[in-house]
Design a protein around this nucleic acid. Structure first.
Length: 721
DNA sequence: CGAAAGGCTCTTTTT
DNA sequence: GAGCCTTTCG
C-alpha cells in the first residue's frame, strides 16, 4: 500500500517531514486526521519506527478511537502497540504506573464534577466558609483554571489581590489536602500531577522521553498551558513533535484552552516547519464561502485561504420561524422532504444547537412525527444515579479511603443510617484526622458508644461495615462481573430499584454497566477493577454516537467538532442564543462564539440550514430575539430565505424567495422612478436594509431595500451611457 | 427516620 | 423548567 499515493502536496509534505518539530495548520475538512494517521503509518513502514515508540494525543475518546480504527486499517495488528489516547487517559495510566514516586496511591480514584462539588462543599464546611457568599462552582472553576496553568496553591498565594483570591487560596489548599486524604485526583490533577511527577523525578521522565521518538497532537488549538507543558516534557529528548490545529476552531477557552500555545510553538521550537492544509474536501463552495463570511469578521485571526474543488452546491437556507416549536417542525418537514426525494437518509442529517436545553423541543417534535434520532450526550451515562451508586461501591472496594464515595453509598439503598449519624461519623473522622472508613472502624471497635449516636445507629453501622468488608474480601478474588453482581445482590440494590417508579429503566442501565464491566474480564480481579474504574471515569458518552444506525443526530455545536454530515441544521441563530447572551459583553468571548458558529457551518457537506425563531421560551419567559449578527455576514447571493411566519394562518406553502434585500455599498442599481444610482451605504435593520443611494439625476435618497423598486445593475458602464 | 412538598436559584459549552 | 435545598408531615 502506498501511503503517500492519494495525498495532495501539502499533505504529503506534512507526512514526509518526519524530523523535528512540525506545526500543521489545517482548516476544516482539509484531511488533518488523514495526515496524522498517514504520517504514523509512514513512520512505522518507511522509517521503521517501532509503533510502541509513537504517541498520538487527542482530546476526546471518540477521536482516539477513530484514529485507532483508521490506523489499524493502514497498519493492521501493529497499530495495537501505538499509544493513542486522550491527555487524561494517557496521564491516568502513567500515574497509576509511576505516580508512587510523587506520593500518589496507585489505587487513586478519579473525581468527576459531581464528586468535586461534593468535596468542595465538605471543604468549605470545614473551613467555615459560607457557600451562599462564595458559591462552590466558581471556586472550583478558579481552581481548575489555576491547575490548567500549572499553578499550585502556593503559587496562588503569591498574588492575592482581592478577597476572592484570598478565599480561593485557602479553599484551594484545603481542597487539595482533602483530595489527597481521599486518595483521589480530579481531572485537572491527572495532567498537573503528571507534569509534577516528571518535573521532580527526572528518572521517570527520562523513561518516557526515551521511549517516545514521536509525539503527535490533534486539535492543538484546544490545549491548555499544562497540556502544552506536558507535551514539551514528552518530546523533550527527541523533539519530534507534530501538532495539528486550526485557530479558527478553538472553542474551548472556557476549559482554559490557550491559543498562545500555537504562537509559542514557533518560539519554543524555532526550527519548526509549518505546513498549511487549505484544500477542503468536505463542503460545497457555497457553504465554504458562507462560513468564511462569518469567520472573516474576527479580528484575532490570520486569514488563510480555504478552497475547494467541490461544486457550488445548493444555496444556504435561512429560515425564520415564529417559535421554537415551529423551528423544530420545519426541521422535521425538511428531513421528511429530503428523505422522500431520496436526497438524504435520516443519518445524513444533523441538528445542531448552542445549548443542550434547546434539544428538548426538537426531541419532542421528532418523537411526535416519528423521525428516528439519537441525542448525543445530554445526560452522561455515568452520571445517572444508579450507575454512580454502583461505581461508588466499586470505588470503595477498590480504595476505602475514598470518603466521598463511601458517604454516598453508606445509606443507599436505605439501611437506617440517617443524616445525623452520617454527620456525626464524618465529624469523628475530621476530628481524628483519619478517613471516614478508618473512623468507622475505630468507632465499631471501641466498647463505648460515642456521644450523639444511638445504639440503634451503631448497629446499622455495624451491618454496613460487615457488608463492605465482606465485599472487599471478595473483590480480591472475584472477577469484575461477579463482583458487580455480588454488590447488586448483597446491597439489596435490585430490590431497591424494583420499588422505584422508573426502576426498569435504571435496571437496564446497570445491565449496560455490567456489559461494560465484561470487557475487563480478561484482566483478572484487582487489575480488572482498577482498569474498569479508570475507563468508566474517562469514558465520555459522546462516544455513544453510532454512525451505523440510520437516525438523525441531535448534537451541540461543541460536540459536533470533528464530525461531518451531508445535511446540517443549526437552530437558534439568534442574538442571545448564538452568540450566547453570556458572551455579549466580552470581545474575545464574542470571537469564540463566532468560531462556534463557524465550526457548525463547516460540518455541512451539501446542505446548510440556519434556523431562527422570532420568539422562544428562555428562562421560562417568552423572549423575542433579533436575528443573529452572523446572518448578516453571509453574502446574500449565497442564501435563500424561508419565512414561516407568513404561512401560519394561510396554510400556504412556505414562501421562498431569493434574498434581494442584500446589497452592499458600491453596488449599482436602477430605480423605476429615480433611474440609475450607486449605493453609498447600507444600514441593516431588523429584516431589511436601509440604503443610502446617490442617483445620477435626483441626488441622494434614503430607501428601504425590500420596498423600493430596485434592480441590481451588473456593471457600471450602464451609468456612463 | 424517610418521603413528599414547597421554595429557591440559576441556566454554555466537557475531559 | 430543572435541580437543589430546606421544611414539613407521617
Amino acid at each position: 500500500m502506498d501511503i503517500l499515493a492519494d495525498l495532495n502536496p501539502p499533505q504529503r509534505q506534512a507526512v514526509e517531514a518526519v524530523e523535528g518539530p512540525l506545526l500543521i495548520l489545517a482548516g476544516p475538512g482539509s484531511g488533518k486526521t488523514r495526515v496524522i494517521t498517514h504520517r504514523i503509518a509512514h513512520l512505522t513502514t518507511i522509517w521503521d519506527i517501532k509503533p510502541h515508540r509513537i504517541m498520538a494525543v487527542t482530546f476526546t475518546n471518540k477521536a482516539a478511537r477513530e484514529m485507532k480504527e483508521r490506523l489499524s486499517v493502514l497498519m493492521g495488528e501493529r497499530a495495537k502497540s501505538l499509544t493513542v489516547g486522550t491527555f487524561h487517559a494517557i496521564c491516568a495510566s502513567i500515574l497509576r504506573r509511576d505516580g508512587a514516586a510523587a506520593g500518589i496511591d496507585p489505587k487513586y480514584v478519579i473525581y468527576d464534577d459531581a464528586d468535586q462539588l461534593a468535596l468542595m462543599k465538605r471543604c468549605m464546611q470545614e473551613l467555615c466558609i459560607d457557600p451562599k457568599t462564595h458559591p462552590p462552582k466558581p471556586l472550583l472553576s478558579a481552581i481548575s483554571r489555576a491547575k490548567s496553568q500549572l499553578l499550585s496553591p502556593g503559587d496562588c498565594s503569591l498574588r492575592i489581590e482581592s478577597y476572592f483570591e484570598e478565599v480561593l487560596h485557602r479553599v484551594y489548599t484545603h481542597y487539595q489536602d482533602l483530595l489527597s486524604a481521599n486518595h483521589a485526583l480530579d481531572f485537572d490533577d491527572l495532567l498537573m500531577m503528571t507534569h509534577h511527577l516528571f518535573d521532580k523525578h527526572p528518572d521517570v521522565l527520562s523513561k518516557y522521553q526515551s521511549r517516545y521518538l514521536h509525539v503527535l497532537v490533534d486539535e492543538f488549538q484546544d490545549t491548555n498551558i499544562t497540556q502544552y507543558a506536558l507535551l514539551r516534557q514528552f518530546a523533550g529528548k527527541h523533539r519530534n513533535i507534530c501538532v495539528v490545529g486550526d485557530p479558527d476552531q478553538s472553542i474551548y477557552s472556557w476549559r482554559h484552552a490557550d491559543i498562545r500555545n500555537i504562537l509559542n510553538f514557533g518560539k519554543d521550537y524555532s526550527e519548526a516547519k509549518t505546513v498549511y492544509l487549505e484544500q477542503n474536501y468536505r463542503s460545497t463552495k457555497g457553504i465554504l464561502a458562507a462560513a468564511h463570511g462569518v469567520i472573516a469578521v474576527n479580528r484575532d485571526r490570520i486569514d488563510h485561504g480555504l478552497w475547494t474543488e467541490n461544486e457550488e452546491g445548493s444555496p444556504i437556507t435561512i429560515v425564520k420561524a415564529p417559535s421554537e416549536t415551529s423551528e423544530a417542525q420545519f426541521v422535521v418537514g425538511e428531513i421528511q422532504r429530503l428523505m422522500a426525494s431520496g436526497e438524504a437518509r435520516a443519518r445524513d442529517c444533523a441538528i445542531m444547537y448552542r445549548t443542550n436545553a434547546q434539544s428538548r423541543v426538537v426531541e419532542e417534535c421528532f418523537v411526535r412525527y416519528g423521525i428516528p434520532y439519537q441525542l448525543v450526550g445530554s445526560i452522561r451515562f455515568y452520571e445517572r444515579r444508579e450507575v454512580k451508586d454502583m461505581i461508588a461501591y466499586l470505588r470503595v472496594l477498590h480504595n476505602p479511603f475514598d470518603g466521598i464515595s463511601l458517604l454516598r453509598i453508606i445509606n443507599t439503598p436505605a439501611r437506617n443510617i440517617g443524616q445525623k449519624t452520617v454527620e456525626r461519623l464524618s465529624q469523628l473522622a475530621q476530628s481524628q484526622g483519619v478517613p471516614v472508613f478508618v473512623a468507622l472502624q475505630r468507632l465499631l471497635q471501641s466498647s463505648e458508644v460515642p456521644a450523639g449516636l444511638t445504639s440503634r445507629a451503631v448497629r446499622a453501622l455495624e451491618a454496613f461495615w460487615e457488608l463492605i468488608t465482606q465485599l472487599i474480601a471478595e473483590s480480591q478474588e472475584m472477577d469484575l462481573v461477579d463482583l458487580l453482581d455480588a454488590v447488586i445482590n448483597k446491597t439489596g440494590y435490585q430490590t431497591y430499584l424494583d420499588n422505584l417508579e422508573d426502576g426498569g429503566e435504571r435496571w437496564e442501565n446497570l445491565l449496560e454497566l455490567r456489559g461494560l464491566a465484561n470487557e475487563y474480564a480478561a484482566l483478572g480481579p484487582a487489575e480488572g477493577l482498577a482498569a474498569f474504574l479508570e475507563g468508566v471515569m474517562l469514558f465520555s458518552d459522546t462516544d455513544e454516537l453510532d454512525e451505523k444506525r440510520d437516525v438523525a443526530t441531535l448534537i451541540t455545536l461543541h460536540q459536533a467538532k470533528g464530525l461531518e454530515f451531508p445535511v446540517v441544521f443549526i437552530l437558534g441563530v439568534e442574538e442571545g442564543v448564538l452568540p450566547h447572551s453570556r458572551s455579549l459583553n466580552d470581545r474575545s468571548q464574542m470571537e469564540e462564539e463566532r468560531r462556534i458558529c463557524y465550526v457548525g457551518m463547516t460540518r455541512a457537506k451539501k446542505r446548510l440550514y440556519l434556523v431562527r425563531a422570532t420568539e422562544r421560551r428562555l428562562l421560562g419567559e417568552m423572549k423575542s430575539n433579533p436575528p443573529s449578527r452572523y446572518l448578516r455576514d453571509i453574502p446574500g447571493n449565497l442564501c435563500q430565505e424561508i419565512d414561516l411566519n407568513w404561512s401560519m394562518d394561510t396554510c400556504a406553502p412556505p414562501e421562498t424567495k431569493q434574498r434581494q434585500a442584500e446589497y452592499d455599498a458600491g453596488d449599482y442599481v436602477r430605480h423605476a422612478k429615480f433611474g440609475d444610482g450607486v449605493i453609498v451605504s447600507c444600514a441593516p435593520t431588523r429584516d431589511d436594509q436601509e440604503l443610502l443611494i446617490a442617483f445620477e439625476k435626483v441626488g441622494m435618497k434614503k430607501l428601504l431595500a425590500s420596498v423600493a423598486p430596485l434592480e441590481r445593475m451588473s456593471s457600471p458602464e450602464l451609468l456612463d451611457d
